[in-house]
Design a binder for these strands. Structure first.
Lengths: 332, 332
DNA sequence: ACCCTTGACAAAAACGATTTTATCATACAT
DNA sequence: ATGTATGATAAAATCGTTTTTGTCAAGGGT
């Protein structure tokens, strides 16, 4: 049903090869201007658009980029996706999304699938290092840009928030507001999270506050926090936004108000999901909005996509590693 | 660099045609079992996977489905996307996403782009009727399933929440709780929203409450609401979750508490985005969680994707219109 | 008068699969 | 002995492009 180049050529009484040259505005080959006009006119009239699959086969490029992320249901990745879709669209690329669900096998499967579907490049947010060999191999076949993640040993481009700086200025803000005993809540298992922790420690050092291992926990551990609070071992908390609701519940249990009794700053905008009445009550302890570190998610997506497309277009993408640090912002 | 069928064939000392038959498990053609074994072994050893682009060209199917939605940044579409990605992945399909941003031209562009990239089917959430002719045409070329939207005149499948029922049971809940003067806040411009309004009116009728045009507004209009409230013309409100924050601000201005002074039920889970301290304060008027109508978003995505893939596989998809109503739930 | 360029176009190859059509022994029936 | 199945495989066509190579007449230079 759809109109092929052959149809245009036949109607314009010309060979398909010439038609192709004309429709691709190839002026290197000399042609009668009238012929050019005629072919273009016919193509327009028939509403011809080149079949991207055939084109992809011949050209070995599909104007498609693969996007592989852990999940699509958090606002964090959504904004990144949006940024990616925006610039991809501007540059006439289309994006194939896959959701790895933090599952190494699924990630592997998607990578293979994208590759043999001929994507021109891949954007990925990957944490576990399990597919590192595969990623290295892929990195030699198509450009690869990592978003909000860092895989030691893969020589590619990385676009990440400056997590160290973010945690640094967040912690500094707590100190500025008078904090002296700061508790850190958050994982350190992967590079970006380790950076955050390092930023936290750096701020402590710069402001001559001694770091104590006792004031550091991976998860929001109610019992530990309870002890620290009741023994007045801490006056403030720097915490990942993911844990904000659990934290508030703990604080409420101890009848503490923010910021009078305890100061809290979060990495990422705190997200209050209020499922129950208790959740709504819990919010009442927040007397002032908490300062938080905002990641430029949209910009991160945009930037990563720009870099990828740049690499696709130039074809230069091997043997260089670059880490683009996006500027976090302190929001009060 | 990647290994082609030709490479496998050469290594197994066989023609590509036979290799293809073997790797596709075509038993209609008689072959020496030993040859089959050998070819499969070689293919496995070389790590051969068929080039999906070439395959797509020859077979005219790409195992790709197009997904076109207005935006990717609201939790509503995110869950739908997730559902779609899940079932697509299970069925070995891959998803090409596009974001129309409520823009007719962008929608048109994406539809064309997806089509000529050879997607096997399209899932779309479309509101404005502007691309209706294009959609009709597409509907004859590949299966088309609408998600959470309805376009009069396009003979395709629709997967939507039973909006009428949702609004009906939501309103009924308000009435059950003693409401007699209910205000409706929400647009009616598109089919799904009109259904909601109809459900609201139906509930009023069934419970012998007269509908008054004065208690109906498209947006959350502060002035109007203020008047209705201060004149005690209403005791409850049925409202789209999108407007919950503006509504709370108005209610707070009048110093009203939920549900003591005014009952509120929402369509979709109320989403409290608390940007400022005022926002947090505003939540304090909510003394009890509000009842709300929950749409089965994930299931909607799954269902739509299942239907689409079913149609792709059977090839039967023309000249029937079906509207699948997903069951909304009342949450208290 | 002969060779060379060039303008204008056509034919064919290539991309990597799948599928239809051929080849060519051997075996079997008549 | 001749024609026809059939088993096992190869060759060629096809999908719709792009690109390389070919054709062929007109014009220019010596």
């Amino acid at each position: 049903m759809t109109v092929r180049l052959k149809d245009v050529a036949k109607k314009a009484q010309i060979s398909t090869s010439i038609a192709s040259h004309i429709l691709n505005d190839n002026y290197k080959i000399k042609l009668n201007p009238e012929t050019r006009r005629r072919v273009k006119e016919v193509a327009k009239k028939l509403g011809y658009t080149p079949n991207a699959v055939a084109r992809g086969l011949r050209l070995k490029k599909t104007e498609t980029i693969g996007l592989l992320i852990p999940n699509v249901m958090t606002s964090f990745y959504n904004e990144i996706i949006r940024g990616i879709e925006m610039t991809a669209n501007e540059e006439n690329y289309v994006v194939l999304v896959g959701c790895s669900a933090f599952n190494t096998d699924k990630e592997k499967m998607y990578l293979a699938s994208m590759l043999n579907r001929g994507v021109d490049g891949i954007l990925i947010s990957s944490f576990k290092g399990s597919n590192i060999e595969l990623l290295k191999k892929i990195n030699n076949e198509v450009p690869l840009v990592f978003v909000d993640s860092f895989i030691e040993g893969v020589v590619a481009d990385y676009v990440v928030t400056d997590n160290l700086k973010g945690a640094y200025i967040g912690t500094k803000e707590l100190i500025r507001a008078g904090a002296t005993k700061i508790c850190y809540v958050g994982h350190v298992g992967v590079s970006v999270l380790q950076d955050r922790f390092n930023g936290f420690v750096k701020a402590l050092n710069d402001y001559k506050i001694e770091f104590s291992k006792d004031l550091f926990m991976l998860d929001c551990e109610e019992y530990l926090l309870g002890k620290l609070i009741s023994q007045k071992k801490i006056d403030s908390i720097f915490i990942s936004a993911d844990y904000i609701m659990p934290l508030l519940r703990v604080l409420r249990k101890y009848n503490l108000a923010i910021p009078a009794d305890i100061k809290v700053a979060t990495f990422d905008e705190p997200f209050f999901n209020t499922e129950t009445q208790e959740d709504i009550d819990v919010l009442k302890i927040v007397k002032e909005p908490m300062p938080y570190i905002q990641q430029p998610k949209l910009e991160m997506g945009k930037k990563a996509c720009e870099i990828l497309i740049e690499k696709i277009k130039t074809g230069i993408y091997k043997h260089t590693i670059s880490k683009i640090l996006m500027e976090p912002k302190l929001k009060i």
